[in-house]
Design a binder for these strands. Structure first.
Lengths: 111, 111
DNA sequence: CACCATATGTCATTAACCGGCATATGGCGG
DNA sequence: CCGCCATATGCCGGTTAATGACATATGGTG
């Protein structure tokens, strides 16, 4: 199945694109900022994920400009990508709520 | 690295153990219930994850009883397991909040 | 008597992430 | 002037977790 639950790096990548289009390297820095330095996207993960998300239609190339004779490809969320991120965010938020609830409601004072 | 972010099946498994000890099969049913039928833990995932979590010290064997000449091993969260689940829940909740915030704050009305 | 729920387990495959390497430019410090 | 770092994109081998299928065993139900 391809609808295996999204992992943190992918989720953060999409989140980094949620407010405005960004190019690969900028995404990596943004992800690091969002996660307070916790998650540093490796280039292998980054460009691999971009490739995958393009094929899944969750992101698309926003623009390609040449800066200092270097290509800079900018990506943006597609409509389905926006929806997918919203769904995924709600899904994990619900799981987090349930986990927190059970931790509080259960045999909390045991250990 | 072993501190790769927890995936959904693992997270749900720990959540299923958060309120009270359960044995493997009961965990699988509980996970399905928690996720509203969305996630059905395969036995490969289930027992593989239990093995891994035992080694990581996040869960431990609570009791081993023989019911109908069949072994029933019950697992429970350890103190570190409880902490890890709480940390992970807070972490993904924060990511979900940020994703939702950006989706709302960004170029929302574009597409 | 066959099938299903209960219950635990193994194993090959797949997919995502990791870590390292490669390549290229422009700026800054030694 | 030369090396290192930030910027920027990309490939590839290896690890790990989840998947799907198979195996085994019992008790209850149609």
């Amino acid at each position: 199945m391809t609808d295996r639950a999204m992992q943190e790096p992918t989720l953060l990548l999409l989140t980094a694109l949620a407010d405005e289009p960004r190019h690969g390297y900028a995404i990596a820095r943004e992800v690091e900022a969002i996660s307070s330095g916790r998650v540093k996207l490796r280039t292998g993960t980054l460009y691999g994920a971009l490739e995958r998300l393009l094929q899944q239609g969750l992101i698309e190339v926003h623009s390609e400009e040449v800066v200092d004779s270097r290509l800079r490809r900018t990506y943006t969320l597609t409509s389905p990508g926006r929806t997918a991120l919203a769904v995924e965010a709600e899904r994990i938020a619900a799981t987090a709520r349930e986990a927190t609830r059970r931790l509080g409601a259960g045999k909390a004072a045991t250990a």
